[in-house]
């Protein structure tokens, strides 16, 4: 028997599902506590976050918590894995595109013109000293860990909660899912471009399943709609072949790395995905769907 709890955080839907209803309350409390810690460490919308301190003090090494070290570390791994398609140094580009506050605030205000952009400085510029827990970025650079922080949190929470309570756990934060433990039956998941839309149903036995899209977090600008997925090569919102990508991988971080890379850089990311052999479902601008590497062919409209 499963039990789940759903709430809103980080401008997205969070859902925790366990196959032991007795532990749901404690597990939900632990997940909320972890998300609160991640928010305090890595939110770029909070002036008191550690990430804001790193961005404000660009040009010098800044002492940070082990948690932020982890989050920066995983963002650099994602950047390396994706060949730079998922780059944490797109912070300035995201701001230039107009995404400088919570997405609901950005949508609600009058459209303001976007600022000139330039290619991302590059993840290789980030200095991370794990031993003494310090992070440094060059002047003029700004970090944005939004691409990987949710997936990292889903991974960490699912693994820890499953181990602690000895049950199967499904953690869903926005489009990032992570299943841990051994459920009696695989979880049934609806994969959709946006919440509430018709999608396809698949089963998820273990690992991570993520969906990245440029159709969800978008806002009006004088030149049209902008969105939050930045192509690091140009510093502008991506306009590649696919508007949405869903990927399965052993972890949510890994799945998110590929799904984000496919939306951010399009076909440039396809080679790495093919080599990795992870199942993927891609939706092109015209709605054409491409399923790769063993994506369940019998998936149905949910």
């Amino acid at each position: 028997m499963t039990a789940s709890r759903t709430w809103q955080a980080w401008s997205c839907t969070v859902r925790l599902t366990v196959d032991d209803p007795v532990v749901l309350g404690a597990a939900a409390g632990a997940l909320k506590a972890l998300m609160d810690r991640v928010d305090k460490a890595a939110s770029r919308f909070r002036p008191d976050s550690e990430l804001s301190a790193v961005n404000t003090r660009a040009g010098s090494m800044v002492p940070v918590s082990r948690l932020l070290v982890d989050l920066v570390d995983v963002s650099l791994v994602a950047a390396s894995m994706s060949g730079g398609a998922v780059d944490p140094t797109v912070g300035a580009a995201v701001l230039a595109a107009g995404y400088d506050s919570d997405i609901e605030t950005v949508r609600a205000r009058l459209a303001k013109p976007t600022e000139p952009t330039s290619p991302a400085p590059g993840w290789q510029q980030v200095r991370l000293n794990r031993k003494v827990a310090m992070v440094g970025i060059p002047e003029g650079t700004s970090l944005d860990l939004g691409a990987t922080a949710k997936a990292w949190t889903a991974d960490r929470a699912a693994l820890v909660l499953s181990k602690r309570h000895g049950c199967a756990v499904l953690v869903e934060i926005g489009g990032d899912l992570r299943a841990a433990g051994t459920p009696a039956e695989p979880w049934v998941i609806r994969v959709a471009e946006r919440e509430g839309e018709q999608g396809v149903a698949v089963t998820l036995a273990h690992g991570g399943l993520t969906t990245s899209t440029r159709t969800a977090r978008s806002w009006a600008t004088p030149g049209g709609y902008a969105h939050h997925v930045i192509d690091p090569r140009t510093g502008r919102p991506a306009d590649g072949r696919w508007r949405t990508a869903s990927v399965w991988a052993p972890t949510a971080v890994r799945a998110n790395t590929f799904s984000t890379a496919l939306v951010a850089t399009g076909e440039a990311a396809l080679g790495r995905l093919t080599l990795a052999g992870h199942p993927a479902r891609l939706v092109a601008d015209d709605g054409e769907v491409t399923e790769l590497s063993g994506w369940p062919a019998a998936s149905k409209a949910a």
């Binding site: 789940s4 979880w187 049934v188 698949v202 089963t203 399943l209 994506w295 019998a298 949910a302």
Partner: peptide
């Protein structure tokens, strides 16, 4: 970890 879903299976996530 992916598979095909049954037609009448309730969605859990």
């Amino acid at each position: 970890g992916l598979g095909s879903a049954q037609q009448d299976a309730p969605v859990q996530g």
